[in-house]
């Protein structure tokens, strides 16, 4: 189990004691070769375009980030101060790996990159995000996305 030694004792306890949802079903979607997949990133880092709505406590919504967005237009308004933000300040790819994903597409490892990526704010109970997540699935399919990379923070 992760040691979480770089966290405060209090925050490590919060994380280990967190009431995680469990599910009766184990959905499993099969697909073609990775080299033919169209991939979108869904982050829980509470990031968004500078011009978009900031996140607030209990926010269950998501924000869209165009794949060709300038990294300087992306900010973070996650409610929690209890994780490192200096990595994100120095290099957006520590949180939202836009450049690395483009490289994988260029090298033929994946088929293509989605036109948009998305961010939720992970401090919210994910059970409250179900409706938005299912609605987001429709948007992703409209963009011909078949595979989603989920990245926490």
């Amino acid at each position: 189990m992760v040691v979480l030694t770089n966290l405060s004792d209090h925050f490590a306890r919060v994380l280990t004691d967190l009431d995680c949802p469990t599910f009766d079903t184990k959905p499993w979607v099969r697909g073609g070769p990775l080299s033919e997949r169209r991939v979108a990133i869904v982050s829980s880092a509470g990031i968004h375009l500078r011009s978009d709505r900031h996140f607030v406590g209990g926010d269950t919504g998501y924000r869209a980030i165009p794949n060709d967005a300038d990294a300087g237009d992306i900010v973070m308004t996650h409610i929690s101060p209890n994780y490192d933000r200096t990595g994100f300040m120095q290099d957006i790819n520590t949180v939202l790996p836009l450049d690395r994903l483009a490289e994988l597409a260029r090298d033929g490892v994946i088929g293509s990159v989605a036109s948009h990526h998305y961010s939720f704010m992970g401090a919210t109970d994910p059970r409250g995000m179900e409706d938005e997540a299912r609605e987001l699935a429709g948007r992703l399919k409209a963009d011909k996305v078949d595979s989603v990379l989920l990245v926490p923070v």
Binding site: C20, P126, A133, A137, V145, L150
Partner: peptide, 14 residues
């Protein structure tokens, strides 16, 4: 994040 994966997978996305 893991729960979001569950919801999206149920909607047909890997």
């Amino acid at each position: 994040m893991s729960a979001l994966g569950h919801f999206l997978e149920e909607e047909g996305l890997a």
